[in-house]
Amino acid sequence: MIEVKIDGQRVAVAAGTTILAAARRLGLEIPTLCHHEALEPFGACRLCLVALDEGGRQSIVAACNYPLERSGLSVETGTPAVWQARKMSLKLLLARCPGVKVLQDLARQWRVDTADLLLTGDGEEECILCGLCVRVCREVIGKNAISFVYRGAERKVSTPFDAETDLCLGCAACAYLCPTGAIKVREEAGRLLIDRWHSDLEQALCSECGRPVVPAELLVQMREKAAEEGVPGEELLCLRCRRMRAAAAATALPVPQYGPADSFPARRSSREEPDVNQARKGK
């Protein structure tokens, strides 16, 4: 264990703990856009910048991926320099994606506007390149259906050759983690569509009501995995039918794993959600 100081408070953490994790342990709020507990730290959005003092040597670092390696380090999360740098990161992202609500909200809160910048987007662009989608697809789902392509100002997230890829199963974990709503998943005529990835997938139907529930290929792969682990295959039910049955059996409702239940009711049952830890182990 090492001991460091964050905003004047002493905290003991295991060596290698990130500043963000240590600060959160103290209940300190540090804003992030590209961070997720289940994924490797990335350090791209630069909203979590903090001031680090290493025995007199001062620098601004990203809290999310700066590992605290030794005692005696001191971190300040809210100095004027930190706020100046964070605000500029936000301002630059807002100029890129002026229509994105999470940025607009933060900008209001931080009193940031983009009036004095020359380049401001037309609102079409909603991707802030946080990479949560790329990383969840790689690190958790293990499919690598999407990646960053091109570089610099042209950098974007896309499928290989910007075309439909059979690696996308339609699990929509990318859309679920996307902080800006840039990845839109919709259902049309019984098919699941993720336009951004050119995905157009056949859905398996609820055995009770016949509603589309989950992309067929995803279901196949989940059942294979379940079989490998000795979990017996279950009848496919949509959430509503499942609840009805559950209510009928007077047992507890399945608890949604995370997030509000209204976004993708069809795939929100705990059984069907790909298990983060299982997927990682299986990689």
Binding site: A44, C45, R46, M88, L129, F148, Y150, A153, E154, R155
Partner: peptide, 9 residues
């Protein structure tokens, strides 16, 4: 490379 906001934007 375009990874972080300050450099890219």
């Amino acid at each position: 490379c375009g990874k972080c906001t300050p450099c890219r934007e």
